[in-house]
Design a protein around this nucleic acid. Structure first.
Length: 610
DNA sequence: CTAGGGTTAG
């Protein structure tokens, strides 16, 4: 811990001299004026405290701390200024340490100190520290102060394992203000319980608390988190009624809510009608389009540039993902250039997105180049690289990365195991895959979910070990879902095992009776078994269903332009004839190499008997 | 000198 330095000159004039040398109080002003402005306090202790605050506001913590250490007498205000200075610059440990020294020196904290230090506890997610401060607050009789109560509630809501402690504080608050309500709604939403957040919002309305832009934007985020278009629209109506429409946070959260509820046209409509848009508005809309309309996302990105807005790492992470979805390598490389030009390539989230983008564009070597150059890697970096290797069939490399990741001290999660197992599955590394599956629970205490079981069923099934796959399904600790049965069905189809195939298809149809492709596979199994009566039944059921299946679309980027195709496409690009000629050549090559076309899943050709 | 709101990655 630091020691308090004593100045050689102990006069108050020395401290005032220090202050006049300081740039933030404007030395030039004082030197030209004969008397300082009246607003400046004459007490050097107060002056120094204000100087500390100015330094902290500029992020000059070292300078602030030096001044603080050199102070001859420090009252509770100076201590609190130093503590809140550290918290406002995200140095929560330092804030906490200053608080501890303060207590040791026998300075009694006030409600300002307590609420500042509670913020530090909250950010450190240290419920233990927070509870200790709670005790002090009670001891000094500050637990009736609004600021302390709200800060306590927020601390428990953020750090405690459940919302129970926060609720206890909340219910005891006699006069709840706007901050009390909004904090509660926001914390429920942060924990993924948007519905509970909305219930608090509803109670707030019942108690006739006036709506504000704050409460509206938070409540809209709650709607977004539970994808409730219904509630979202209702709050939107209230927003219009209160004239909050022109408020940016409210407008931005509305755009996000409509996007998350998959109402992209409504989102865009609102985006379009907003009187003012900032970077966050554009980022939200671009991110919203990324998932289900990547080309719109890229279009919006270029529009944003022509509006004179400078993209940040949030913008780029969506745009890189959009390029990955489209497998648009050229575009992705240009975006990568833009990232480097802005010095954002050190951003971990962006590097992760680039790894994924290059892998999905087929350049897994570029992915690895980015991966190796990263100074620090998180779980997502490793997962992205593993998935990149896995999707290119490099199972051994993916396993190697997994081991290195564990060695570097990062704990794998379910998604990492998904990556390792699917890499093993694609590379035919059955025993390695099973080994990792078994060590999941034993060595890493990660519980396998449906998807992971589906992956192991796929792993066994691809290798022809269909019976083992079925046994695994029977041993599953929960009811197998569509993905699991789908994996088994795929294996049965590939290895011509009709008995288990019929069973799997039936299970899928029980879960999702309108799955046209399942009927196709099932009818083909009946056909191959010569059960023509059943086959006819299936075909009858399928009639009228085929139209419900959406056409699969493929696309390719050539010279900065994305061309997309559907089966029997006649509308495509001008060189469509050339494309078909190329395709015929390829099919000829494949047939010469011994390829037999698989028509099991051709839905449209069924009626011709092909 | 103190408290509350909006956007991103597998």
């Amino acid at each position: 811990m630091h020691s308090r330095k004593l100045l050689s000159s102990t006069s108050k004039f020395h401290q005032i001299h220090l202050i006049f040398k300081n740039p933030f109080l404007g030395t030039h002003k004082f030197s030209t004026q004969s008397t300082p402005p009246h607003s400046l306090p004459e007490d050097p202790q107060i002056l120094t405290t204000q100087l500390i605050i100015s330094y902290c506001k500029k992020g000059l913590l070292k300078e602030a701390r030096k001044l603080f250490d050199e102070m001859l007498e420090r009252d509770v205000v100076s201590w609190t200024a130093m503590i809140s200075g550290y918290t406002s610059c995200y140095r929560y440990n330092q804030a906490w340490m200053v608080f501890c020294v303060m207590k040791r020196e026998g300075i009694e904290p006030n409600e300002f100190t307590i609420s500042s230090v509670l913020k530090a506890c909250r950010e450190m997610e240290c419920c233990y520290c927070g509870a200790m401060v709670h005790g002090l607050a009670i001891k000094y009789g500050m637990d009736g102060c609004m600021y302390v109560e709200n800060a306590l509630m927020d601390m428990y809501a953020t750090c405690s394992h459940s919302m129970d402690d926060a609720c206890m504080v909340f219910e005891r608050i006699q006069e709840k203000n706007a901050v009390t309500w909004t904090t509660m709604i926001a914390r429920y939403t942060d924990r993924g319980d948007g519905l509970a957040g909305l219930r608090v919002f509803q109670r707030m309305l019942q108690e006739e608390v006036e709506l504000s832009t704050f409460s509206c934007s938070i409540a809209i985020r709650s709607c977004a988190s539970i994808r409730s278009h219904t509630f979202g629209k209702q709050i939107h109506a209230a927003v219009v009624k209160h004239g909050f429409n022109s408020n940016l946070p409210v407008g931005n959260s509305l755009v996000d809510m409509y996007c998350k509820c998959s109402c992209l046209s409504e989102a865009y409509e609102h985006f379009h009608e907003m009187p003012e848009r900032d970077l966050i508005t554009w980022n939200t809309m671009i991110a919203g389009f990324e998932r289900s309309g990547s080309h719109w996302s890229l279009h919006l990105f270029s529009q944003m540039g022509s509006q004179g807005l400078n993209p940040n790492c949030f913008t780029f992470s969506s745009v890189v993902a959009a390029c990955a979805n489209l497998a648009a390598l050229n575009c992705g490389q240009q975006v990568h250039g833009g990232i480097i030009r802005r010095g954002l390539e050190t951003n971990m989230a962006l590097a992760n997105a680039l790894i994924d983008m290059y892998a999905k564009c087929g350049n897994v070597n570029d992915s690895f180049r980015i991966f190796t150059k990263m100074p620090r890697r998180d779980l997502i970096s490793w997962t992205s690289m593993m998935n990149g290797y896995g999707s290119h069939g490099y199972g051994r490399e993916a396993i190697g990365l997994f081991d290195k990741m564990v060695d570097s001290g990062i704990k794998p999660d379910q998604i990492v195991f998904m990556g390792v197992l699917s890499a093993c599955s694609h590379a035919g590394l059955v025993d390695e895959g099973l080994k990792h599956f078994n060590s999941m629970v034993v060595d890493y205490s990660v519980k396998p979910n449906q998807e992971i079981y589906g992956c192991v069923v796929d792993l066994l099934g691809r290798a022809g070990r269909v019976k083992e796959a079925y046994e695994l399904i029977e041993k599953m600790p929960f009811q197998p879902d569509e993905t699991v049965w789908g994996a088994l069905l795929g294996a049965c189809k590939a290895h011509g095992i009709s008995y288990l195939g019929r069973l799997a298809a039936q299970k899928i149809l029980d879960l999702r009776p309108n799955g046209a492709e399942t009927y196709v596979i099932l009818s083909n199994i009946y056909a191959s078994d010569g059960k023509w009566g059943e086959f006819a039944k299936m075909r009858k059921l399928m009639r009228g269903m085929a139209s419900k299946k959406e056409a699969g679309r493929s696309w390719i980027e050539v010279r900065n332009h994305v061309y997309s195709f559907v089966v029997d496409d006649k509308m495509g690009c001008a060189q469509i004839e050339l494309v078909y000629r190329g395709l015929e050549m390829l099919v000829q090559h494949m047939k010469e190499a011994g390829y037999v076309p698989d028509s099991d899943c051709l839905l449209y050709d069924m009626e011709d008997g092909t």
